[in-house]
Simulated assay, not measured.
Amino acid sequence: MLNKYPKTKITLISLLSLIILLVTFVFWLRSLMPANVNQQDLSVTQPQDLVYLSKGVKEYRGKILAVVTSTDVMDTSGQKTGYELTELARAYYVFEANGFEVDIASPKGGKPPVVIDDDDMGKFDFAFLNDTVAQVKVDNSIAMADVNTSQYQAVYFVGGKGAMFDFPENASIKSLVSEYYQSGKVVGAVCHGPAALVNVTLDDGSALLANKIVSSFTNDEELLLIPNAKDIFPFLLQNKLTEQGANFDVGHVYLANMAQDGNLVTGQNPWSVWLVAEAMIEQLGYLPVKRQITAEENTISILTTYEEEGIQQAKVKISLMLANDTNSFDRVLLVVHTAVYGMQWQLGKSIDMLRLLSFADNN
């Protein structure tokens, strides 16, 4: 009897079934874990609750401009977007703790759209939402055309998919980046924020990006979550940066990675915010104020060790962390990376994540 279904159709059905099983398994695994496995109820955190700020620099060192997107919908796809709250909040407090006042701008000015991912929220992010001064600044962001560029020592471009649509062609952004880079002021950007570097020309007519070491959200990261990204975005950011002459620094998928080329500081994804913000402080000539490393950062460190040195060394790192604090890393983030590896068909690595979780629970 002839097979009723073509082989290609059977293969697609099998792949789809495997994906569904994997996703179902991950959600089941997460359901077994406490909702706040590493934290108390942080939603009421106030800025004054952040020990980091209370021990920060008291002297006034100047101002840094943070720029967020004004785009709320991804082109014709209809998908909502905006700036990523965590990418603004964490950098905002690094700058403040190190003596810098932060102003917030956007291409259109006014209240910009925001993306809040509940799974990623930590005490700094909730503190930002409860920070009256910060919220007034966000709700009344300065239009880029009205920014007095002479007031700031540095600029930081916040990520969020909306940046892909309104950063690259904004004349005020291009002018500010060119001016700051050539005058030695610090230019920082993270995730999709480096879209602000696209199409920037220096006074000699060359592209800013020519031969510069930069990082940003990678093609692999973009296409993993949005397979039709090429149809939604005007371009893939890694491709565009490379086309304009950048030496693109690719880190591990969804792990922290920061690239610095003189006064140009860029980060790959949301987990790179701390690295970018503190590197900007160093480039400004100051030693960053010490802070307690977050559980999320420790987890990213475990995952980086796993990628570069293998599972045994990752277990060693977990043991050292557990010896100091049983909640020193975020188990939920390990579960998330179980899915990330699975979505890349790296099933062996997915199994290794489960082995690390089991190891942590038994030590």
Rank of each mutant, 00 (worst) to 15 (best):
T149G: 01
D325I: 09
D120P: 01
Q346I: 14
L264F: 10
P234H: 02
R30W: 15
K108V: 00
V265C: 04
E309K: 12
V336L: 11
L356R: 03
Q292E: 14
E297D: 10
A279I: 10
E307F: 15
Q40H: 10
S178R: 12
I213V: 13
A154V: 07
E222R: 07
V158M: 02
Y286E: 11
S106F: 03
P234G: 04
Y306E: 11
K240T: 10
S216F: 15
M74A: 11
H192D: 02
A207M: 15
I281A: 02
M164W: 01
A91H: 11
H337W: 14
L29S: 12
T76I: 07
G251C: 12
Q182K: 01
I300E: 05
G62R: 04
A145C: 10
V67A: 00
A256N: 10
S77Q: 12
W345N: 07
K315A: 15
K174T: 06
I104Q: 00
E278Y: 07
Q260C: 13
Y52H: 10
L236K: 06
L333F: 06
A35P: 02
V26W: 09
F27T: 09
T45H: 03
A127I: 07
A154Q: 03
A195H: 07
A127M: 11
E243Y: 05
L354Y: 10
N36T: 06
D203A: 07
K9R: 15
A97P: 12
T81A: 08
S206Q: 06
D231V: 15
K80P: 06
N298W: 14
G56L: 05
K174A: 10
Y92I: 14
V155G: 00
V26P: 02
Y341G: 06
V37L: 11
V250H: 14
N269T: 14
L32D: 14
I142A: 00
P194R: 00
G342I: 08
L32N: 15
F248I: 13
S106Y: 02
A195M: 12
P6T: 08
I300N: 04
S70N: 01
L334H: 05
Y306D: 04
N211F: 10
L223P: 14
L53N: 12
H192W: 08
L356G: 06
I281T: 09
G82C: 02
L354K: 12
L176W: 06
S106T: 03
G193K: 01
Q135C: 00
E59L: 08
V250P: 03
A145Q: 05
G110D: 03
K212Y: 11
Y60G: 09
A189W: 03
Y92R: 02
A314G: 03
S106Q: 05
K240Y: 13
